[in-house]
Amino acid sequence: MLPTHSLQPHPIADIPRLQRAARKLRRHMLTMAAGKGQGYIGQGLGFADILAALYFHEMKHDPQNPGWEDRDRFILSTGHYSIALWAALVEIGVLSADELAQYGADGSRLEMSTLDSTPGVEMTGGSLGHGLGQGVGMALGLRLAGKSSRVFVELSDGELQEGSTWEAAMAAAHFKLDGLVAVIDCNSIQADGPIVLNIEPVAEKWRAFGWLTTEIDGNNMQQIIAALHAVRRETDQPKAIVARTVPGKGVPCIERCEKAHFLNVTHIDWEDAIRELEAQHD
């Protein structure tokens, strides 16, 4: 476990440290997927860098008190990315590493999709198109309560096909929710395979809806940090980060897999996968 758990965002980014954190998250994810033999590992690995930047740099949170009322909120709108959130919650110390082997097991609270009864989970996910609307409600509530806390909402590119996402996008701009940050994970896959209904141009859509929007390589820590710092700017707009990511990032044998939404990874040698990940030290 990394030693630093900040209650406030770090003023200066330690890029190598954050890259190491991302690698630890990936390692936890491999442990979970190996135990279960399947899962949404591709998406989790692709989103690891952004999660590391959020939990180890940008968000204020207190692992000793996950319900701290002044915390920044992180909503995982795609509940099936739970494998990534469990990794982050283990790494910050909210959940125990011993539980990783229980990912997706009967009776486990580390479900294949998030439930808000597990500590550190802000919203029950799984049905897509819910996260941004609840994020709008939380941002409104925090503003009404006089809190400076921000709300970070992860969305997927496939989720942009849900009409409710745009209902929420319109409302966020209308209500001038400057403390709301949408991070759109564009990994170009959805349940039926490569994006089945064109959603481009993504960034232009968010700009047209009134969001302060930036587009980055979501697996490049420098760019992630630059984008997170840019959206600290106090405008009266909500903020969107369009992050292009590679499913399976960091584990070449999974990157090379068919770009599948749900990976049944029986043919993967997990020992090899872990060796591949650990070979990528800087």
């Binding site: 009322e69 802000e122 919203m123 198109g129 819910h130 941004l132 609307g133 609840q134 994020g135 709008v136 409600g137 939380m138 941002a139 409104l140 509530g141 925090l142 009404l144 309560a145 009409g163 409710s164 209902e167 929420a168 319109m170 409302a171 209308h174 209500f175």
Partner: peptide
């Protein structure tokens, strides 16, 4: 007026926003 929000013709979002407000301690 400060506690009243009209979200437009968007019932899914009406409920989503209400759930988010409830999660921050309000009674929508």
């Amino acid at each position: 007026p400060e506690r009243y929000f009209n979200v437009g013709m968007a019932e899914q979002n009406l409920i989503g926003i209400a759930a988010g407000l409830a999660r921050t301690g309000f009674v929508p």
